[in-house]
Nucleic acid binder design. Structure first.
Lengths: 296, 296
DNA sequence: TCCATCAAATTGTCCAAGACATTCCGGTTG
DNA sequence: CAACCGGAATGTCTTGGACAATTTGATGGA
């Protein structure tokens, strides 16, 4: 595998790959006939594992020298340190369906869950913890890419259909939803949209990866009252803070900015004029208080 | 704007940006206090235009020296050279809604169109030409990013809901849909899924950007009969051919590979054992002939 | 007129080692 | 216990050269 392929595969820039090799001695690629780096399959695997661990707070210098086995141990350690919630029966059942690739069963079961307990509880009690569980499996490398894709796609279908079925009462506030560039995770967005629609808010989603300037254009053109941004755990905190600052500067003060998703971002001090939605249930309070503030 | 930001914004690699500067004298960024490149807004704009023209076959060396105005003239020339179809009234109406940011009206109108003429004709007669028109506007730089996002999101909502409403008759063949890495355009996939579902095929979508190896895993785990890949016009032909070859090698011969979307890819000779779907209507024939071949 | 072949020009990617701004960690002080 | 600070850690950017891969354009032949 060439350095370009590894860059695409791991998300580590060519510069980073070369500098790691220089500094840490890993990766340690061979060379082809033209003197260019050739990465063995196993090293790419290890790089992926390292990237996953870094996304969860580990430092490269500390973990670079570890063996694959030690890295895996580290992954599981993280899992144990986290809130070791005993999985509910339902959750375990859904997880099993994902890992057994039973797409239709999964979709049917999830769809029934929405009908049985309502969309709100579905999102907070099922989807959110399921996402965490899937994230942990992913961190451990215990999940194939296509399994994650199957899961994401299934959930997307169920959520979108549920959102479409919420009786529309096009009332204030108007919310524009999207993510910053480099944030490709759209499930959080859909979950937020579901919660917002349930509160009777008027939602317009731009999908993922909208440049800051286009968020501004979109918000004004849609007369949005609130711009809602979703961040995944992996999103670099610095980039998030920078983007939020710029957005706050560019947006009229009348328009609120809500940031939710990964808790990492919310740990840092957000720019003034940006509201942190620490949980999905915070959306309920958020909308309620917005309506109080705008009662006139 | 730093070189990293320009890379993200334009899709041109840092290496390419530096080598263009060295060879063509453009871009011609200033330097900040640390000696690092700072690209003025206007140059980034021009870079985007150049990138768009390159995606449509122009060579960098030829167009790099042209002024913004000359580039725009070139864009429109391409438009005129193309099949200059007079837009139907409906199409013009939808285009206007997009450019006027009337999201709700657009969605309602599209939804009605589905009901009135059926999903099949909706996809072939409305969505496909609308995509072309939007693509041309985009090429001319006459469309903001957020407008394109609004359009994509709206169409996604309408298509997904329509697909979900097709009465399910889970029959053969089983089709796995996805795109290769770096192909983020998902509308083509949804259009294909719509056509396939109408033919009574059993569809499982992996969403976008699935690595080849995971396509293989997904296809086998879902017992797929056909793997359907979607390509946009911009997708590099070489990458498509490479990916398709590798996929063909890795997949049991029993499983067919169908490639559709951008006509660029289909111009080149595809690897043996890969079927080109030159148009959406070809899907109908494709499924019919598959059923004939597998009549036993 | 059309197609094949081949050299030349074009173009993107890769390499090397160094520099430095920024972030993070650990220890000290208030 | 919080705030501060120095040093280590880390990713990104720099330069200029090299070269494989693709495209172009001209030539020759069917």
């Amino acid at each position: 595998m060439g350095i370009g392929a590894v860059e695409r595969d791991t998300g580590l820039s060519k510069d980073t790959l070369r500098v790691w090799e220089r500094r840490y001695g890993f990766p340690n690629p061979g060379r082809d006939a033209f003197g260019e780096r050739v990465y063995p399959r196993e090293q790419v695997e290890k790089l992926r594992t390292i990237k996953r661990l870094m996304d969860h707070g580990h430092r490269p210098g500390k973990i670079m020298q570890l063996s694959i086995d030690e890295l895996k141990a580290l992954s599981q350690e993280g899992e144990n340190a986290g809130s070791r919630v005993e999985l509910s029966d339902d959750l375990a059942r859904y997880l099993h369906m994902v890992r057994a690739h039973q797409v239709e069963e999964l979709r049917r079961a999830l769809g029934q869950e929405v009908v049985r307990n309502g969309l709100g509880r579905f999102v907070t009690d099922i989807v959110a913890p399921l996402n965490v569980a899937i994230g942990e499996l992913w961190l451990q490398g215990a999940l194939e890419v296509f399994e994650e894709h199957l899961y994401t796609e299934s959930l997307q279908v169920v959520l979108r259909s549920a959102i479409a079925n919420v009786p529309q009462s096009p009332s204030a506030p108007r919310v524009l939803l999207t993510t910053f560039p480099n944030e490709q995770h759209g499930l959080g967005l859909l979950m937020a949209e579901a919660m917002l629609v349930l509160e009777g808010a008027h939602c317009v989603s731009l999908g993922i990866e909208t440049p800051v300037w286009d968020i501004v254009l979109g918000a004004t053109s849609q007369s949005a009252d609130i711009v809602a941004l979703s961040f995944s755990l992996a999103y670099p905190a610095a980039q998030a803070v920078d983007g939020l600052s710029e957005l706050r500067r560019s947006l009229p003060p009348r328009i609120e900015i809500w940031a939710g998703g990964g808790t990492e971002v919310l740990g840092r001090r957000l720019p003034d004029g940006v509201r942190a939605m620490n949980s999905l249930s915070a959306i309920h309070e958020g909308i309620k208080s917005w309506r109080v503030r705008h009662a006139s």
